[in-house]
């Protein structure tokens, strides 16, 4: 049973439609729908449209605001600082996501198997970091990694060694990857675990009758069932990495030399607005990055789903 098929048999999408078609059209529903839609248009659609408007203008000291067409977009495409951030988040994605998915998958399989004692305890503990604000998670790990009073400093004192702090510029991407692994492993674990719980019991009974061992059950029943959730986890991870902002921005306070103002595209857009007052260009960077994120997220979903149907 795959998740894509679940969408097709979705009661909300399929079975409730005929009921609604039978009822007469009336404006009554708007009484309930209007509050959401009004705020939606104001905080979702309007900012995007306004940014599109900003992105085709430019404000210069001499000459004021002028229509510049695609100039800002061309500038983004040729901006080494923008691409520096893009390459960095791609590296980040390549490091962080496999580790996190692997851990989450292992934990979900362990909790789902009846062989683990105290599985409820582990489920709650591993999911708990999801509730911890990114700022606090980053501060905790940042202090631990720091060479002032962190554990790295303790280790160095104790061993009389000089292990480099993970906050040095060559290691900081790993430090951020660790923070995100810590925060989101449990969330992905629960997505996987929820899917494992939907596998019909009869499948396991049949495997049991055939004398199948645990590994066979994992490989032939559990992993195939998890493919759809894997795609979801990847889509969330694409968004999380491509929109990276909180962790590096907080770490900047602890390790100012390791994190530039264009460390990630989102930080670049933020700093263009705040330190540079280049609002038009900032809007363009944010838009390009948003579109890029959506394209990659959509491709992951498309690719993953097509594989599924084969």
């Amino acid at each position: 049973m795959t998740l894509t098929r679940e969408v097709e048999t979705h009661p909300g999408a399929a079975s409730s439609m005929p009921v609604i078609r039978r009822s007469r059209r009336s404006w009554t529903g708007w009484g309930f729908m209007a509050p959401f839609m009004i705020v939606f248009l104001f905080v979702l659609l309007a900012p995007v449209l306004y940014s599109v408007y900003l992105s085709v203008y430019d404000t210069k000291l001499i000459g004021g605001t002028q229509f510049v067409g695609m100039d800002n977009y061309i500038r983004v495409m040729n901006d080494p600082q923008f691409w520096d951030g893009v390459v960095r988040i791609l590296k980040f994605f390549a490091i962080q996501v496999p580790i996190m998915i692997f851990l989450a998958l292992g934990a979900a399989l362990a909790i789902d198997s009846a062989r683990l004692r105290a599985s409820g305890f582990f489920r709650i503990i591993i999911f708990m970091p999801y509730a911890v604000p990114a700022v606090v998670a980053t501060l905790m790990w940042g202090f631990i990694f720091g060479d002032r009073f962190g554990l790295v400093a303790n280790l160095n004192d104790f061993l009389n060694a000089s292990i480099p702090s993970p906050l040095t510029s060559s290691l900081i991407l790993l430090a951020i990857a660790n923070i995100q692994v810590w925060t989101f492993t449990g969330y992905n674990m629960l997505i996987f675990y929820s899917t494992l719980r939907t596998i019909p019991e009869e499948l396991y009974e049949a495997a049991d009758l055939d004398g199948a061992n645990q590994w066979w059950v994992i490989r032939s029943i559990k992993l195939p069932a998890l493919r759809g959730s894997m795609v979801i986890a990847l889509v969330f991870s694409v968004i999380g990495s491509f929109q990276l902002f909180n962790e590096p921005n907080v770490l900047k306070g602890l390790a100012p030399n390791s994190i530039s103002s264009f460390f990630t595209p989102n930080m670049y857009a933020y700093n263009l607005s705040f330190s540079g007052q280049q609002y038009n260009y900032s809007a363009t960077v944010a838009l390009v990055m948003g579109v890029l994120t959506m394209i990659v997220a959509y491709s992951v979903q498309h690719f993953g789903t097509r594989k599924d149907e084969r």
Partner: peptide, 15 residues
């Protein structure tokens, strides 16, 4: 649903 919330922060601020 597929628009990441953080991508909207800067545009919303500008508006």
């Amino acid at each position: 649903l597929s628009i990441p919330g953080t991508a909207l922060a800067v545009p919303t601020f500008l508006l």
